[in-house]
């Protein structure tokens, strides 16, 4: 369990980036941290593996205070995937890149090879194992970065803007992958601006604004409310906008995902359902 207790953080420049954050992350959790640019999302992510230590309050990972243990020690449990893959790729082949973390943690060559193979397979990168990561496209490099963290099987996976630069099918794969991870009991925290992705994946949403948590709850309850999305400089997902205008027909406003929208509409349309299906 990662626990943040009244965490505040001030950069040396004097900027107060986080204030009074209380948050608990447990195995099986799936959280999305959303908020405007400069809200403190990345700063918060860096608190979780000890890259930044709180100025006030404390962060504990499975009971260990992040101030007292090294980042390398925490990195075994908390995997943080940075937004820009170019900040971490350096190896000659994709295989070596993914093996880097495992070697740092002192796994035996056999384990390293097995884990690398499994991870590349899972992320659809197996065919690039011997390619240089620098020859891959932006989206592929991003997946290599993700693979390089996933290979170490962290209990807590923190993803900074994982959907940027991914095409829709890749996003769909990522969504399934995340689902798999947290149903296996791992915790997944993603930082994102991607409202549509959040609407479909339905994590618990933590809304961050100007360094403080201004709202939290299910994707439905947060993303369908104007006062919430405006505060975090977001726009409501398409389904929510649609159901906002359909409210006068007696439909609920808090619909954000296609699945629930479909069920509700089918129920409402009832009799006409058959003609719709025959038309299509």
């Amino acid at each position: 369990m990662i626990r943040l207790e009244r965490v505040s953080f001030r950069y040396p420049s004097g900027l107060l980036a986080l204030h009074d954050i209380d948050l608990t992350i447990q195995g099986g959790d799936f959280l999305a941290i959303m908020g405007e640019n400069g809200a403190g999302k990345t700063t918060l992510a860096k608190q979780l593996n000890g890259l930044l230590k709180p100025s006030e309050g404390r962060v504990t990972v499975d009971g260990e205070d992040t101030r007292k243990v090294s980042v390398a020690h925490l990195a075994r449990k908390v995997g943080l995937v940075f937004q820009n893959p170019d900040h971490l790729l350096f190896s000659e082949t994709v295989k070596d890149e993914v093996a880097f973390g495992l070697k740092n943690f002192g796994f035996t060559p056999e384990v390293v090879e097995k884990q690398v193979g499994r991870t590349l397979e899972a992320l659809g990168l197996a065919e690039y194992a011997d390619t240089s990561p620098f020859l891959l496209s932006g989206g592929e490099r991003k997946r290599v970065a993700l693979a390089s963290i996933l290979a170490t099987e962290p209990d807590y996976l923190i993803l900074d803007e994982p959907t940027i630069g991914q095409d829709y099918q890749q996003k769909e794969r990522l969504r399934n992958f995340i689902l798999q991870l947290y149903s296996q009991g791992k915790a997944v925290v993603m930082i994102t601006h991607d409202v549509e992705f959040v609407a479909e994946a339905n994590p618990k949403v933590i809304l961050l604004s100007k360094g403080g948590i201004v709202g939290q709850g299910s994707a439905e309850s947060v993303l369908s409310r104007d006062e919430m999305v405006n505060r975090a400089s977001l726009v409501k997902p398409q389904m929510s906008r649609l159901f906002g205008s359909l409210a006068r027909f007696g439909l609920p406003r808090d619909v954000v995902d296609v699945h629930r929208a479909r069920l509700l509409l089918e129920e409402k349309l009832g009799g006409v359902k058959e003609t719709v299906t025959t038309n299509s």
Binding site: A75, F82, N104
Partner: peptide, 16 residues
């Protein structure tokens, strides 16, 4: 700024 980010990213992968 980039240098700091790279250092952070690699430390997150267990580099000491």
């Amino acid at each position: 700024v980039d240098a700091q980010t790279v250092v952070d990213a690699q430390r997150s992968r267990g580099l000491e």
